[in-house]
Structures are given as structure tokens and as C-alpha cells.
């Protein structure tokens, strides 16, 4: 018997096994919850389990999943982004105004919207790393700024009249799956690759786990955080573009509360608000769970106001479970 195993259980499992177990437990929680919800909602309303409804769910989940991808990176650094919904609104307005009012080509307008998202994210990152504002407050400020600008842009009125080529982002389908869901899938696959296989992903987790340790080994923590928040802003903007195509209109109140869905999705998927943990697959399942919940309550004829209440309870419950998980490990 060796010295150090004397203080640990003799049959302690290999590290890799322990990690796999932890991973399965995280995903298992989301998966089982999804199945339970699907069964309940199918019993409440027969239409829930139709192709038409799942097509609809695929459209809705792609927006929450996109935001959840951005949120996964931010949360992995022990940060949080509560400005996602209003950055979504601002970039939705930007994109629609450029296309409808200024007759910009669709692609150019989308690019401009992504740049606006990047700028918003960069400002948040700058406040965090240079002005030492905590992520919660920095993004709370950006929430107000972006929402205010979105309302200012048209004095609060929505924009209609987008061309069909643009609306195809949501209406078109490939292999029976809506284009917007493909967009979300591609972004998620890229994000999973970056998070798991590259130095960028490794440093993201390292900073969230122990920023001081990352600093001591020479990682440029400030520069890294600036990148994370800027890219998260780009993802929010992409969601804004998709949102406009989905609703055929841009409104300053678009994406209201969506950050709550994405935060819940990340935490349900195994991410921890204390940083260092998070998987794209987990967050994607979390996004699916939140979408099923949203869609199912609507079909079950539950008031949208009640839906908001449920959302709030789910967010708090998810974070409570995160706390329990940290204690149990």
C-alpha cells in the first residue's frame, strides 16, 4: 500500500473514469428532464408530438442554443452575460434598418449587425478587464445601453418588409430541418471543437477555474476575456439576425428574457457559474429542455405570464442544483 492511497479509498477509480462518470451525470440530468417533460406535454396536448411542432421547436431551440453557446464560454470563465437579450434586440434592429430603410445587401447588413454585436461585447470585456467592473454589472449596464439604443433607433416601433431571401434563414429547410437550426448546429460544433481541442478553449476553462494560476503560467487573462466577450457579442448578434428572420420583423423588445433561457440552459447542461466547467453538448441539451418547456406550456394553454414565472423558478432551481453539485462533486 502506498502512502497517498492510504488517505483515499483503496479502490479509487481512474481519473478518466471519474471524469466520464461526472460528464454522464451532468448530461443525464438534462436528458431525463427532457424526456419527462416531453411525456407530460404529449399527454396534455396530442399536437405536441407532431412533425409540425417539432419543426417549430427546432426553430425556437436554435436561438436559445446559439445564445447558450456564447454563454457557455462566458460562464466557463466564471463570468455571466445578462446583456444577451438586449444585444440581440439592438443587432436585430441594426440588421433590419440597414436592409429595409437603407437598402443594404442582405449579407452586408448581417455583417454590420455582427460587428455591432462584437463592439457591444468588446465594451463589456473592456469594462471587466480595464475598469474592473464585475461581469454581472458590466453586462447589466450593457443590457440597458443596448435596449435603450434599440428603442431609440425607431422610437420603439417595429420594422417590417424584409425580403424573402432574408426570411429564408428561418423558413427554408434542408433535410427536413430548418436552416436556422443548421446554423445553430454548425456554430455549436465549431464551439465544441474550440472548447475541447484548442488552447483557446483550454485557457477559457483555466481562467474560470483559477485566474491567478492562469496568470502565473503566462496566459494573458485580460486579452483572453476581451476575446471571449467580443465573440459572445458576435454570437448574440447572429441570434439577433436569425430572430428577425424567424419573426419576419425586428422589434426593440425582441429577445426579452432570452439571457435567462441561455443561463438556465448552460447550468442545466452542467456548466457552473463559479467557472471552470461547461460543455457545448450539455448547454445544447439545456437549451432543448428550456425550449420544450416554453413550447409545451404554450401548447398546454398555460398563460405566457405563468411561463415567465416558471422560467424564473427554473433559473433559480438550476443554480441551486449547481451549488449542490459543487458540494458533492
Amino acid at each position: 500500500m502506498n502512502d497517498s492511497s492510504a488517505v483515499r479509498p483503496a479502490s479509487s477509480p481512474k481519473g478518466a473514469q471519474l471524469n466520464l462518470l461526472r460528464y454522464l451525470r451532468q448530461l443525464g440530468f438534462a436528458l431525463i428532464s427532457i424526456i419527462v417533460l416531453v411525456v407530460i406535454f404529449s399527454l396534455l396536448n396530442g399536437r405536441f408530438f407532431s412533425y409540425a411542432n417539432w419543426y417549430h421547436i427546432a426553430q425556437q431551440v436554435s436561438m436559445i442554443a446559439l445564445l447558450a453557446v456564447g454563454q457557455t464560454f462566458v460562464v466557463a470563465t466564471a463570468g455571466i452575460d445578462i446583456s444577451q437579450g438586449s444585444v440581440l434586440a439592438l443587432t436585430a434592429m441594426t440588421c433590419a434598418i440597414l436592409i429595409v430603410t437603407f437598402h443594404w445587401p442582405v449579407l452586408l447588413a448581417i455583417l454590420a449587425a455582427l460587428l455591432v454585436g462584437a463592439a457591444a461585447g468588446w465594451l463589456v470585456g473592456f469594462s471587466i478587464v480595464r475598469l474592473n467592473v464585475p461581469p454581472f454589472i458590466a453586462t447589466l449596464g450593457m443590457l440597458a445601453i443596448a435596449l435603450g439604443l434599440a428603442l431609440l433607433s425607431t422610437d420603439g416601433t417595429p420594422i417590417f418588409g424584409l425580403p424573402q431571401s432574408f426570411l429564408n434563414i428561418s423558413e427554408g429547410r434542408f433535410l427536413g430541418i430548418p436552416h436556422m437550426a443548421w446554423i445553430a448546429l454548425v456554430v455549436a460544433v465549431i464551439a465544441a471543437f474550440v472548447l475541447n481541442k484548442t488552447r483557446f478553449g483550454r485557457y477559457t476553462l483555466a481562467i474560470g477555474s483559477n485566474a491567478e494560476s492562469a496568470r502565473r503560467v503566462g496566459i494573458n487573462v485580460s486579452a483572453h476575456l476581451l476575446w471571449i466577450y467580443s465573440l459572445a457579442g458576435v454570437v448574440s448578434a447572429l441570434t439577433g439576425v436569425v430572430y428577425v428572420a424567424y419573426t419576419s420583423a425586428a422589434q426593440p423588445t425582441a429577445g426579452n428574457n432570452y439571457e435567462l433561457y441561455s443561463i438556465a440552459a448552460v447550468v442545466i447542461g452542467g456548466g457552473s457559474l463559479f467557472g471552470g466547467v461547461g460543455t457545448i453538448l450539455g448547454s445544447f441539451l439545456g437549451a432543448l429542455l428550456m425550449t420544450v418547456l416554453k413550447n409545451g406550456t404554450q401548447l398546454a394553454g398555460i398563460s405566457p405570464y405563468v411561463e415567465e414565472v416558471i422560467l424564473g423558478v427554473v433559473v433559480i432551481g438550476a443554480v441551486y442544483i449547481d451549488n449542490l453539485r459543487r458540494r458533492l462533486r
Binding site: R199, R202, G208, S209, S213, V217
Partner: peptide, 26 residues
């Protein structure tokens, strides 16, 4: 100053990870 959530290997190589090219360009 170790990152708790990372593996032993990831910690020892943190900031100095060896790289290889996936698919020739990544």
C-alpha cells in the same frame, strides 16, 4: 496555483501546450 477543474496533464502543460495540426490546418 493549480486549476482544480483541469486534469493533471493540462495543469502541468498549462500555457505551454504542445500542438499538432488536425486535418492539416487546425
Amino acid at each position: 496555483a493549480l486549476a482544480d477543474h483541469l486534469g493533471v496533464g493540462a495543469n502541468i502543460f498549462l500555457g505551454r501546450e504542445p500542438l499538432r495540426w488536425a486535418l492539416g490546418f487546425l
